[in-house]
């Protein structure tokens, strides 16, 4: 199969050369198209434009492309579009009704009452505050821990791959699984955390019971689970930095740490941005973890918007109110994604 493919590719290359020669144009722009870095896509776009200007026949083909390629992207798009965007629209419609209990929503009277109710619900404020605390704490610490891991592993370390595999391992586990582990880690009487602290004469603490500690405990467990992710993202970015920059920094006489801080870390900014977007969204989904520990009603101090939304809907049958909270959650994630997407678009990464 490989041979056949190689042959096809070879044949196509020949054909392309023939076509070009017969046209007598020396279009070299496409040659560089390897999609190496950010600029490649822009280049391709430029190349395409140039071709378009050059030949109107080709342009006709392009115009047809949307139609021709539709069988490929349209079915997945419709399936996804229905379940994601139509569902969000539907959810918004429900949030305007006063749907609760059994039966079906009545779409004839629509108003913003649920949004008003959100404002005057003290538990909403608590949940929003907790959500932000979790988002910020989790994302920042993950970024830092991941950076440290990546820098440690980026040096030539023996068993580097094995170590990377171990650090990333928790991410392959379900929240429900990791929640079981951490309930045991945090167990008041027998958990490792209290036992270790006991050695230095501290505690025991009720990690999952004390309202002042619960959120921190949850964030810590989530960091355990996801710092490997940031590590992987940074490692990929580090590998993309040309070796000579390391060399240059070293020759400069800079210490390793300072070299990283001055030369390397600034170049990780794009990786940092995209990692934080993903981390924020992981954090918004932390529902599973909290549910596995506390069920519908997390301990005070650990209730976030995601848990409150599911509780209002599936425990209390307050569908319309829950939909309104869901819209708030959606708006929150949109506030994170939209600038990111726009920036990616500007940089031609989309």
């Amino acid at each position: 199969m490989r041979d056949e493919l190689a042959k096809t590719v070879e044949r196509l290359r020949d054909r392309l050369r023939e076509v070009r020669e017969s046209r007598g144009t020396g279009d070299r722009v496409t040659e560089t198209d390897g999609g190496q870095e950010v600029g490649a896509d822009e280049e391709r776009a430029v190349g395409t434009d140039r071709r378009v200007v050059e030949r109107s026949a080709f342009r006709r083909l392009l115009d047809h492309d949307a139609v021709q390629s539709a069988p490929f992207w349209l079915p997945p798009f419709l399936l996804m579009g229905f379940f994601v965007y139509a569902a969000i629209g539907w959810n918004f419609a429900i949030s305007l009704t006063d749907y609760q209990g059994f039966g079906e929503p009545d779409y004839s009277v629509l108003d913003l009452d649920n949004y008003g109710a959100m404002l005057s619900d003290p538990a909403m404020w608590a949940a929003t505050r907790n959500t932000f605390a979790l988002l910020v704490g989790f994302t920042l610490v993950c970024l830092v821990v991941g950076l440290v891991l990546a820098i440690l592993l980026d040096r030539e370390v023996r068993f580097g791959r094995t170590l990377r595999t171990i650090y990333l391992l928790p991410m392959s586990l379900s929240f429900i699984v990791t929640a079981q582990f951490w309930m045991w880690m945090y167990n008041f009487n027998f958990g490792i955390v209290n036992q270790l602290l006991g050695v230095v004469g501290l505690g025991p603490y009720s990690w999952l019971g004390n309202p002042d500690l619960v959120l921190g405990s949850v964030v810590f467990a989530l960091i355990w689970q996801f710092s490997g992710y940031t590590m992987v993202v940074y490692l990929a970015a580090l590998r993309a930095i040309p070796d000579d920059q390391y060399e240059a920094a070293r020759v400069d006489g800079a210490s390793t740490l300072r070299m990283y801080w001055r030369v390397i870390v600034p170049q990780l900014k794009p990786a940092m941005v995209s990692a934080s977007v993903v981390l924020v969204l992981f954090a918004l989904k932390a529902f599973d973890f909290l549910y596995a520990i506390w069920g519908y009603r997390p301990r005070r101090g650990a209730d976030i918007l995601a848990t409150k939304m599911v509780r209002e809907a599936f425990n209390k049958q307050e569908w319309a109110y829950a939909s309104a909270i869901a819209i708030l959650l959606f708006a929150l994630s949109l506030a994170v994604i939209a600038p990111y997407l726009y920036q990616q678009h500007r940089q031609g990464n989309l």
Binding site: M80, G81, F83, A87, N91, K285, L329, F330, V336
Partner: peptide, 19 residues
């Protein structure tokens, strides 16, 4: 279209589970 696909990755499922 692509932007809609990318944004689709990041949708919190809470926003769609009731519908």
């Amino acid at each position: 279209v692509l932007a809609l696909f990318v944004a689709g990755i990041f949708i919190p499922y809470q926003a769609v589970i009731i519908p």
